[in-house]
């Protein structure tokens, strides 16, 4: 049970301030990224007419996500932003699934990872909104029904970041805490594998999908 509140931190003094690095999260993120890179090279390194198994998997994945993106945005923008959506989904899926391996921790268990991804989606959606609609029309959406609704609209936009990142963080963190507590209670007999399947694979996949879909929806709301 001591594992619950434990965070590996590297604290470096820097001109009177302390720079804090969460080492575990950084290492796990690098592991996830390297696995994704290896998968990408295996899937697209040697493109063949008759595809190998990994290439088939990659093609299925990419075509599904491209179709989703082109449904939400229009054809041209969809082609432009589908790689972002694919990368986000694959990264989140692998990050959520890596926790089922013993001694590995999900990078999304730390609030920093979901919050930075949420901020990424926030800035990208507003950039796309300004670029497609023009600055004037973009500003005009904030004063939408009446002039004095502006603060509410701004807060609503900022709350999107909080809600999207806390949703992912809370799900993954809560799942891992439940797994830890129940494993401790039953002395790791019989029950933890099922919990791992539910909270690791099922909830992880759904939350990764929800995160990507919501980012996509935020972009499409800004475009229209």
């Amino acid at each position: 049970m001591k594992e619950l509140g434990r965070i590996h931190q590297l604290i470096i003094p820097f001109f009177g301030h302390n720079l804090t690095f969460n080492l575990e999260v950084i290492i796990m993120t690098w592991i996830v990224m390297s696995i994704l890179l290896v998968f990408g090279f295996l899937a697209a390194g040697k493109k063949r007419i008759i595809p190998g198994p990994i290439q088939v998997m990659g093609e299925l994945f990419i075509s599904q996500l491209f179709a989703l993106t082109e449904d939400a945005l229009d054809k041209e923008l969809g082609k432009k932003y589908a790689p972002l959506i694919c990368a986000l989904f694959m990264f989140l899926l692998l990050s959520n699934w890596i926790g089922i391996i013993p001694y590995m921790h999900e990078p999304t268990k730390d609030l920093n990872t979901p919050l930075s991804l949420g901020l990424l989606g926030f800035f990208i959606s507003h950039y796309v909104g300004i670029k497609t609609k023009g600055f004037k029309a973009y500003i005009k959406t904030y004063f939408d029904p009446f002039f004095f609704m502006m603060p509410l609209n701004v807060i609503g936009e900022l709350a999107k970041v909080v809600s999207i990142s806390f949703r992912l963080f809370g799900n993954i963190m809560g799942g891992s805490i439940i797994i830890l507590v129940v494993s401790y209670l039953v002395y790791s007999v019989l029950i933890p594998p099922f919990l791992n399947v539910f909270f690791g694979i099922f909830v992880g996949a759904i939350q990764a999908f929800v995160f990507t879909m919501l980012t996509l929806v935020y972009i499409s709301v800004q475009v229209k």
Partner: peptide
């Protein structure tokens, strides 16, 4: 349905974060 449920679950997740 699953996406909608995961979104509507978020208030419960907020209370979980507050409890933690």
């Amino acid at each position: 349905m699953l996406v909608g449920q995961a979104v509507s679950e978020s208030t419960g997740i907020y209370s979980l974060v507050v409890a933690l």
